[in-house]
Computed example of a mutant assay.
Amino acid sequence: MTAYIKARIDSGTLVAGNKLPPTQALAHQFNLSENAVYRAIGVLKAEGYVISQQGKGVFVADRRKVIAGPQRIKGIVQVGETIHHKSSTRVTPPAWVAEQLGEGECVNRVRTVNRGDLILQASQSWVHLDVAEVVPEILEPAACDPTWQAVYEDRSGKTLTVTKKELDARIATEEDITDLDLAPEDGPYALVVVRNIYAEEDKVLGVGEGVYRPGVPLSLA
């Protein structure tokens, strides 16, 4: 039962807020005793898949997978989410990005991933200007469908690889609090940070950083 429900949640068939069937219905479906169903629900709760609401039932938890590495090239949103692109600007990159991209200007793309009005993730990427020759859309304040990396691969016929990915954490800065629309008075906040470096052969073409909203359970598998 737990494997079946987890698989449906992981695949997006069951989404955050969906209510699980009553205990008796689950017991009948899986040929279990009600005590066994209670234990299974306990496992799902412990692993962050579901939550209980007293007097209402058991519901799928608001839980996201961290998308990183090669998967991120194919898209950064999940079921029920949208991208809100904020800006695309030619900038001189911060020192840690310049170490990867090289000296000179690049394109800084800033966006959030939302579920309704809730900001789940604040992301930005620094993209080499060479990419603009193939994907001029990166200079426009709009999202690339599904990502600039995927569009670049499709048009150029070349393959981008993730040469490095990092999972980190930090205390939220003032910029993080603004980007994620957090209440400053409720801080300090601890944030999960994911960084990816994208390269064509030995040339780095992009560096990305995603900062995840605190309080939303994440699957780091």
Rank of each mutant, 00 (worst) to 15 (best):
C106K: 01
V91I: 13
L101E: 12
Q53P: 02
A68I: 14
K74Q: 15
I76N: 05
S87Q: 03
R64N: 13
K86M: 13
P93Q: 07
K74Y: 14
I67H: 12
K86H: 13
E105A: 10
P94W: 11
C106A: 07
R63H: 03
I73N: 08
P93M: 09
V110Q: 02
Q78T: 07
Q54H: 10
A61S: 11
H84T: 15
V97K: 02
P93A: 07
Y49F: 09
K86T: 07
A46C: 03
Q53K: 15
A68Q: 09
T92A: 10
E105D: 08
V110F: 00
Q78Y: 11
V91M: 06
V77K: 02
P94I: 07
C106N: 03
V77P: 01
V91S: 10
G48C: 03
D62W: 11
I83E: 04
S87G: 01
V110I: 02
V97E: 10
V50K: 08
I51Y: 13
Q53I: 10
R90K: 14
K65I: 09
G57I: 06
Q71A: 10
G55M: 04
R111V: 06
V77D: 05
V79L: 12
W96Q: 06
H84C: 14
T82W: 05
E99I: 04
V60H: 00
V66I: 10
I83Y: 00
G80R: 14
L101M: 06
V50L: 12
Y49C: 04
G69M: 03
A61I: 00
G57K: 05
H85I: 03
E103R: 08
A61Y: 01
A98W: 07
G104C: 15
I67N: 09
K65C: 11
G102P: 09
G104I: 11
R109D: 01
R63L: 04
F59N: 15
W96I: 01
Y49V: 01
P70M: 05
I83D: 02
S88W: 01
Q78H: 12
Q100H: 12
Q100M: 14
T92F: 04
G57T: 05
R64Y: 11
I73R: 15
E47W: 00
V77E: 10
G69P: 07
V110E: 02
A68W: 13
T112Y: 05
